[in-house]
Amino acid sequence: MRVMVLVKATDDSEKGLFPEPWTTEMMAAMGKFNDALRDAGILLMADGLQPSSQAKRVAFDGPGRTVIDGPFTPARDLVAGFWLWEVKDMEEAVAWVKRCPNPMPGPSEIEIRPFYDL
C-alpha cells in the first residue's frame, strides 16, 4: 500500500527557525533514516517544503477562482515536509515513523495517510 507521510509544521518551522547545532544533527539523523527507508525498499520520494509565507492557495467557488497569498495559519494544520512510501500495511508505516528522528526542535507530529487504491 502507498502512504503519504506528512511532517506537520510548527510555529518555528513556519518562521524558518532551526537552531544550530540541532539543524546539522537532525539533517544527519534524517539522512540515515532516509537511507534505511531506501535500503528497505519503501522510500519512493521525500522532500521538505518552504514555509507557507512562500505559498499560494487557489480558492474555488463555482466558476470563480481566487488566489490567496500565504502565510497560512494555524501552523499545526500545515505540512512542512513529506515522504511517499510503499509499505505492506499501516502497521509497517507506523513502525517506521516511530523510528524517525524528531523532525523539529520541539514537539512535533507526523501524519500517515493512505492513498486510495484504484
Results as ranks from 00 to 15, higher is better:
2 R>N: 12
2 R>E: 15
3 V>P: 00
4 M>R: 03
4 M>Y: 10
5 V>I: 13
5 V>T: 11
6 L>M: 14
7 V>K: 05
9 A>I: 05
10 T>N: 06
11 D>V: 06
13 S>T: 13
14 E>V: 03
14 E>S: 01
14 E>G: 01
15 K>W: 05
15 K>T: 10
15 K>R: 10
15 K>Y: 02
15 K>S: 07
16 G>H: 04
16 G>D: 01
16 G>C: 00
18 F>V: 12
19 P>R: 11
20 E>V: 08
22 W>N: 08
22 W>T: 09
24 T>W: 04
24 T>M: 07
25 E>G: 08
26 M>P: 12
26 M>V: 13
27 M>Q: 14
30 M>L: 14
31 G>F: 09
31 G>Y: 09
32 K>S: 14
32 K>I: 04
32 K>V: 07
33 F>G: 04
34 N>G: 14
34 N>S: 12
37 L>A: 14
37 L>D: 08
38 R>K: 14
39 D>S: 10
41 G>E: 04
41 G>A: 00
41 G>V: 02
42 I>Q: 10
43 L>V: 04
46 A>V: 12
48 G>F: 09
49 L>M: 15
49 L>E: 07
51 P>C: 05
52 S>N: 01
52 S>R: 11
53 S>A: 14
53 S>T: 08
54 Q>L: 03
54 Q>G: 07
54 Q>F: 10
57 R>Q: 09
58 V>F: 02
59 A>N: 15
59 A>P: 10
59 A>Y: 06
60 F>S: 12
60 F>T: 15
62 G>N: 06
64 G>S: 15
65 R>W: 04
66 T>M: 02
66 T>V: 12
67 V>A: 13
68 I>C: 01
69 D>Y: 02
69 D>W: 03
70 G>A: 05
70 G>R: 05
73 T>C: 07
73 T>L: 11
74 P>R: 04
75 A>W: 02
76 R>K: 15
76 R>V: 15
77 D>C: 00
77 D>A: 02
78 L>A: 06
79 V>Y: 05
80 A>P: 01
81 G>D: 04
82 F>W: 13
83 W>P: 01
83 W>Q: 03
85 W>S: 03
86 E>H: 00
87 V>Q: 08
87 V>F: 00
88 K>Y: 04
89 D>R: 01
90 M>P: 06
90 M>F: 04
91 E>N: 11
92 E>N: 07
93 A>D: 05
93 A>V: 11
94 V>Y: 04
94 V>D: 10
95 A>F: 01
95 A>P: 06
96 W>Y: 02
96 W>P: 03
97 V>K: 02
97 V>M: 04
97 V>P: 10
97 V>T: 12
98 K>L: 08
98 K>Y: 06
98 K>F: 07
99 R>S: 12
100 C>L: 03
100 C>D: 00
101 P>S: 13
101 P>R: 09
101 P>H: 11
101 P>W: 09
102 N>Y: 00
103 P>K: 11
103 P>T: 10
103 P>M: 03
104 M>R: 06
107 P>R: 10
107 P>E: 12
108 S>C: 11
109 E>D: 15
111 E>S: 07
112 I>T: 07
113 R>A: 08
114 P>F: 09
114 P>T: 08
116 Y>S: 07
116 Y>F: 06
117 D>V: 15
